[in-house]
Amino acid sequence: MATSSSGLTLYGSQGSRSPLVNWGASEVGVSITMGNLQNNPHPFGQIPCLTDDDDVLVFESGAILQYVYSKAAETNGDSPARKATITSWISWANASLDPICFLETPEGKVYDTGLKKPNRRIETLDQILSKQEFLLDDKNGGFSLADVAVSSYLLYVPQFFQGVDLSRWPNVVRYMKQCAERKAYGDAFGPNVQDMLVSSLGGMMTSSKGGGGGEKDEKKKLFGMF
């Protein structure tokens, strides 16, 4: 892969959303340096946060992913239609998928996932993925940063709510597993996380439809790093 000449610095850590930026950057050949969190310039002190050589400051994972996309040499030739579709899916992941995957208290602490129950939007996503391998079909280039954004959020759910059953959406589960199996995903999130997810998703693919989370989910301690 060609590597861009930008001087991008990412402030983040494992267990947060920042690895999805590392994953996306790797997929499109953009080089990123990890910054010292003590020097994190995010206006609210949160992560991830990205800076560039030319005094650019970007925060919010979706905005960062879109900026990485704009810096990628190997996607500069993407058609306007492909660019519009990718950026739309990235925005959808942040604006619509996030609140489905992560239910928060008024204080912003995640306490549960909405994927334990049927969901109209996830059902629609499952229908889309029943017709194609990735969010963009082969005619439009297949795997893209749209998949990095959407699958990252989906993959955080079995990562933090171990035992949740997503098998009511078989095409989504297949999609999640394919994305988690990518080398760049393992490099960004770590081989232990990758192996656990691939194994659990493989189990969901062989289980019967229905379910949607059981008692094991309730025993998973809450988290609020997002």
Rank of each mutant, 00 (worst) to 15 (best):
Q127H: 12
V30D: 01
G15S: 09
S18Q: 08
L145A: 03
F134V: 05
E215L: 14
H42F: 01
G24T: 02
I47W: 00
G210E: 02
T33Q: 15
G190E: 07
E107S: 15
S96L: 08
K219S: 14
G45L: 11
M176F: 06
A184E: 15
D78C: 10
D53G: 15
S79D: 05
Q159P: 00
Q46V: 09
F134E: 02
V148C: 14
T9K: 12
I86M: 11
P43H: 12
W23H: 08
S26H: 08
L8H: 03
A93K: 02
A149E: 02
K71R: 15
A184D: 09
G190N: 10
M196F: 15
S6C: 05
A95Q: 13
I90E: 01
P41C: 09
D138Q: 15
G163A: 12
M204C: 00
L135D: 03
G141H: 04
N22E: 12
S152M: 09
S199V: 07
N36I: 00
V28G: 08
K220L: 04
L129A: 09
V173Y: 03
S4I: 06
K220M: 06
Y153Q: 06
K183I: 12
S61V: 13
R174F: 05
K83Y: 03
L65I: 14
G12W: 03
D55Q: 12
P106N: 12
A81D: 10
V164N: 04
D165A: 07
D137M: 04
N94R: 05
L65K: 02
K221R: 14
D147W: 06
H42G: 06
V157Q: 05
K71L: 05
D52E: 13
A84H: 02
R120Q: 09
Q38P: 00
N36S: 14
S18M: 07
E218T: 04
L20Y: 01
K221T: 09
G142W: 02
A188D: 02
P118C: 10
A2C: 01
K83Q: 14
V30Q: 03
S200H: 08
S200V: 14
S130M: 05
V56L: 14
S4T: 14
S16A: 15
M225N: 12
S207T: 06
C101Q: 04
G12D: 11
L154P: 11
I86D: 02
R121G: 01
Y175M: 10
E123S: 13
E133D: 14
A149C: 07
V164P: 06
S79Q: 04
L154N: 07
P158G: 06
M225K: 13
Q132L: 04
M196W: 07
Q178V: 02
D147I: 03
F223L: 14
F161K: 06
L129P: 03
V150I: 13
N39H: 13
S144Q: 07
P158T: 11
N39C: 10
G203R: 13
V56W: 01
I86G: 05
S6L: 03
D112M: 08
S6E: 04
S207P: 02
V58E: 01
S4K: 01
L125N: 08
T105L: 09
G108R: 10
V21F: 07
M196Q: 10
